[in-house]
């Protein structure tokens, strides 16, 4: 090959590399897509991949709550022994960073159900109550819980970030505010009386981008 041809070949290769860079460095365009799964008491793993198309599973469970926060327990020292904690292992098998939100719905709209979404990173003194007190800045109100769980606009609540290939265990603490609960669950019950609540825990994985989800 002549020297001129060699120079031309080199120039062509350089131009091809530049063309390749043009395509390689293009911005990705994505979408507000997400994947949801309702978790029952027995199915405690939520595996998701890339959020190509949103999909949902409808599973529900009945939890027997103990006589929460004991009626003679003014300081709620028994809270940690009656609170129900559902652990869910979440796995990101996709190729992009994700965040996972949790929402709990009360199927029969029975009153008094509360929940708190958290991971062990937030845990204080192995106590859910102490953890909540810290996370909610001591403001143990329904509004403060809602702000923590789903955010003021339903889109800025607590979430757990997962890199591709990563898995974590998240927890949902569930309890019933006895003074709001259904009639069956009265002050006359003992501290260990139970009441059934049909609940749906929905885990939603979305891309790790702000503004990606409204519930």
């Amino acid at each position: 090959m002549s020297k001129i041809k060699k120079v031309i070949a080199l120039v062509m290769v350089l131009m091809l590399v530049m063309c390749g860079s043009y395509f390689t460095l293009m911005s990705p365009t994505t979408a507000w897509s997400y994947q949801s799964q309702n978790i029952s008491g027995t199915q405690n793993t939520f595996v998701f991949a890339d959020f190509d198309v949103n999909s949902e599973y409808a599973l529900s469970d009945t939890i027997k709550f103990k006589g929460a926060t004991a009626f003679e327990d003014e300081n709620e020292t028994l809270f940690d022994s009656v609170v129900e904690i559902t652990e869910v292992e979440i796995k990101n098998e996709g190729g992009m960073p994700a965040r996972v939100y949790a929402t709990v719905k009360n199927e029969y709209e029975t009153k008094g159900l509360r929940y708190f979404y958290f991971t062990d990173d937030l845990m204080v003194d192995d106590s859910v109550r102490a953890t909540m007190l810290k996370a909610l800045n001591g403001e143990m109100t329904e509004q403060a819980l809602n702000n923590h769980n789903i955010g003021e606009d339903g889109n800025s609540g607590y979430y757990v970030s997962l890199n591709p290939g990563e898995s974590k265990v998240v927890k949902v603490a569930l309890w019933v505010e006895y003074d709001e609960s259904i009639d069956d669950f009265t002050f006359a019950d003992s501290a260990w009386a139970t009441v059934d609540y049909k609940i749906n825990i929905t885990m939603t994985a979305t891309q790790d981008i702000d503004g990606a989800l409204v519930r």
């Binding site: 395509f23 979408a31 507000w32 890339d50 959020f51 190509d52 198309v53």
Partner: peptide, 16 residues
């Protein structure tokens, strides 16, 4: 301007 499509949310019009 070109953008690489990451997800199938516009499928079948646009695919990953």
């Amino acid at each position: 301007r070109g953008y690489a499509v990451l997800t199938d949310s516009m499928s079948p019009t646009l695919n990953r």
